[in-house]
Design a protein around this nucleic acid. Structure first.
Lengths: 266, 266
DNA sequence: GCATGCCGTGCGGTAATACCGAACGAAAGA
DNA sequence: TCTTTCGTTCGGTATTACCGCACGGCATGC
């Protein structure tokens, strides 16, 4: 084996495998996976998979649900995830604003931080009695299919938007997804004037989002707030109202971050 | 090496080390840890620690905060923790009740599930503007120092309580912690009559908790709801009111679980 | 009732590996 | 300027994790 592996020379392979296993369980149905499924998907023998699973069980990263047994994500991940998310400064700062917006609007409110032009949602508050959207946290999302992503793009110069678009390729998610760079730039230009970005069924059919970006002390975009609802519940006047509320919430976050809002930009 | 290790023959050692490292970072200050600290605390060479850290960085289980660099828990853990906690059925069922109780009381409301007589908190809703308590999720807690723990114990027969008490040894946390089995049984007996359990500065100085258990279709205790506040803010009449509200919330959870509430028990 | 898969569990042997030690450039402190 | 400490990199080797194989249990099908 003289060829160059995709893994660095310093990668501990067993650990990387364990993480691949956890990702596989996370993406599998909630009932969990069997040992044989693990050995198949991981391309390793059953006995090797058994050792790996046992290690994860002992550490509470997995737990065995009888009968089967089927393996599911364990409480150690709840523990670590709670600590990790609490230590994101943005989360603490924005939590009360999310709660207030959720009460005011009756919608699901989320906050994303920026990762190289892409949104990573780090918290979510579901309104009581509202539709629950199963949107993941902690994942780098596509920038062009969510309102939060477009609000973040709108804070960047057009050249940067084009670079990011070329990088991720603007894949289609629904029939309304913007898949061409000029259309994306046009949409962003409107968002800059309006003060908030809109996702009109561009990520999921029937789902509508409104988002506004906030900025830190550098004047750089630090993230975005978004409100998510079912499209049929949102007439035009309601969308404008939501836009103003989200915009106001984002400005408040900007203030708490010691930042300065930009003129004529989201 | 013919001696019996504490780890099973099937334990993948590198993976266990990676988990120990994550636990270490989780218990360290929020600013993160340096590579040298890792190699020291883990008892391994710097180069080995470097390989491990690089692996965790590549998988987003850690991220490097400049300068230093200092290593902190990464967004992959936020992702996995979010999925793991969403898949706990109790969490979805109780979420709206937590939110309502939090609004009604202005306190932090938590829900714990039962793990062999011990409470494991799986969700928490902080009231807006209230004091934030940094209580971890997903950890097996001591049963005798929290209101939720005592509410769970109150649902068990005395013999079982004595077994659990012998197992964990009733360690002291504050000067008010109950450290003797007879006193614990007496406290639990009162809780059974009253319908809710109380933690009066037995876990943290100045912190007061009220909790009530809920039950599943077997009639077994499935967990408990608790309300947490600063002691000076809670006169006696307020505590009684809180107890009734938490009790009512727990009964509601019991109903949603298809369970039946017990007579004269928490 | 018997055969037949399939699953989870255990055990050697060996090829793959993760670890140690040493060394280097850079940055911070004396 | 000198010293210390940090993160990083690189061979060599002892450790190891993996594969193949076999066994017991549990359903399913004939």
């Amino acid at each position: 084996m003289t060829d160059e592996d995709p893994v660095s020379r310093y990668t501990v392979r067993s650990v990387a495998k364990a993480f691949r296993l956890l990702s596989m369980v996370a993406e599998a149905p909630a009932e969990g996976v069997t040992l044989s499924e693990v050995s198949q998907h991981m391309g390793m023998s059953k006995s090797a998979a058994y050792g790996l699973v046992r290690t994860l069980l002992d550490a509470d990263y997995l737990y065995a649900r009888e009968p089967g047994p089927r393996y599911c994500l364990g409480t150690a991940l709840v523990w670590l995830g709670d600590i990790a998310s609490r230590r994101l400064p943005l989360r603490d700062i924005t939590a009360p604003i999310l709660a207030r917006l959720s009460q005011q609007t009756g919608l699901t409110i989320r906050v994303a931080r920026v990762d190289d032009g892409h949104p990573v949602f780090i918290n979510r508050v579901d309104a009581v009695g509202a539709v629950r959207f199963h949107t993941p946290l902690g994942v780098r999302e596509l920038p062009h299919t969510s309102a939060a992503g477009k609000a973040i793009l709108a804070a960047l110069p057009d050249a940067e938007v084009e670079r990011i678009a070329a990088e991720c390729g603007l894949p289609r998610r629904t029939r309304k997804t913007i898949t061409e760079v000029p259309a994306l730039l046009a949409d962003i230009t409107v968002a800059r004037r309006r003060g908030y970005a809109i996702d009109d069924e561009e990520d999921f059919e029937g789902v509508f989002c409104v988002a506004a970006a906030f900025f830190d002390h550098d004047g750089g975009c630090a993230g975005a707030l978004s409100a998510t609802g079912i499209k049929v519940d949102l007439p035009a006047w309601r969308i404008e109202e939501l836009g103003r509320m989200v915009r106001a919430g984002a400005d408040e976050v900007t203030g708490l971050l010691g930042g300065r809002p930009r003129d004529r930009e989201v």
